[in-house]
């Protein structure tokens, strides 16, 4: 199976899923529809409709983590290729990545010491 076919299958799977969902909706509609009532569509906020949209600012108390995460997650991209050839390369790979991970870990410790891992 060529790579292109594989991804074609995955695309097909995605489309199939969407199809499945749509047919479920159709089935539900076939089973029956309820009569519309006024104010039934109010979001679940103690029965009243918020005056403004609720899309207000949400205090992301974890943003310190989030910023660290951005960096960390990206660094992991460098680790996958390394992991695959790790045993071929042997000790050199261990040293390379050891330094890399040590620095990464140092970054974590630094963030920790500066209070980035605190509920802001």
């Amino acid at each position: 199976m060529s790579e292109l076919t594989q991804y074609a299958i995955l695309l097909g799977l995605t489309l199939g899923t969407v199809g499945l969902v749509l047919s479920l909706y159709a089935l539900a509609r076939a089973i029956g529809r309820a009569r519309a009532e006024p104010a039934k569509d109010v979001p679940a906020t103690a029965g009243t409709l918020a005056r403004d949209p609720v899309w207000v600012r949400y205090h992301a108390k974890y943003y310190g983590y989030a910023l660290l995460f951005l960096a960390f997650d990206m660094e992991m991209a460098f680790m996958y290729p390394w992991a695959v050839v790790y045993r071929e390369e042997g000790l050199v790979a261990l040293l390379d990545m050891g330094v890399f991970l040590a620095i990464l870990f140092l970054g974590l410790l630094y963030g920790w010491s500066q209070g980035a891992l605190r509920r802001q």
Binding site: Y63, A66, L67, L68, L70, A71, M74, E75, A77
Partner: peptide
């Protein structure tokens, strides 16, 4: 890709 991520992190 790393540049994207890190730039975003510092930007935010």
């Amino acid at each position: 890709m790393a540049v994207m991520a890190v730039e975003m992190a510092v930007g935010f």
